[in-house]
């Protein structure tokens, strides 16, 4: 099946099998390997990307469902080689260790930025419900998201 979509602002056309998962399309066809696969039951959130501006788990979206959509992956976030403020806050707050969950964490947290009211820690923790990390205990991730929200 033919699909055409925009990925990180660039138009992409491809022929895909209907069952191809968006995450495999991004990773293997487009070589955007920053989006990771951490589970097979849609729990871990490592594969989170933005689809038309909303965070989704790309392991649970078919590439054909993304036909005509606008996709942003972690690679699309750091413009011109400069870290996005959220990425910078992750480094500053030591919010990553092995780095495997990190792209998903960042893409999920991005939805919290730019709101009128800075979320409190409880709200941030709730917003990370769809993302698992096994390294950090989340504390510094929460701090990084809070820091970025305060600055945005």
């Amino acid at each position: 099946m033919n699909i055409s979509l925009r990925v990180n602002g660039r138009p992409v056309e491809a022929v895909v099998e209907p069952r191809l998962l968006l995450v495999h399309f991004l990773r293997e066809r487009l070589r955007l390997t920053g989006t990771h696969i951490g589970c097979d039951t849609s729990q871990c959130g490592a594969c989170t990307v933005h689809l038309d501006g909303r965070a989704v788990k790309s392991c649970t979206v078919l590439a054909v469902q993304a036909d005509g959509c606008d996709i942003t992956t972690i690679e699309g976030l750091a413009a011109e080689g400069e870290l996005h403020p959220l990425q910078a806050a992750f480094q500053e707050q030591h919010a990553l260790q092995c780095g495997f969950c990190t792209p998903g964490m960042i893409m999920a947290s991005l939805e919290l930025l730019g709101r009128a009211i800075v979320p409190d820690d409880r709200e941030i923790r709730a917003a990370l419900e769809g993302n698992r990390c096994r390294c950090t205990g989340y504390q510094n991730i929460v701090a990084a998201v809070r820091t970025a929200c305060e600055r945005s």
Binding site: S42, G45, R54, A55, T60, E111, A127, E129, G130, N131
Partner: peptide
Amino acid sequence: LGDPQVRNR
């Protein structure tokens, strides 16, 4: 219900 990503779709 679920999590934010699931709620979005």
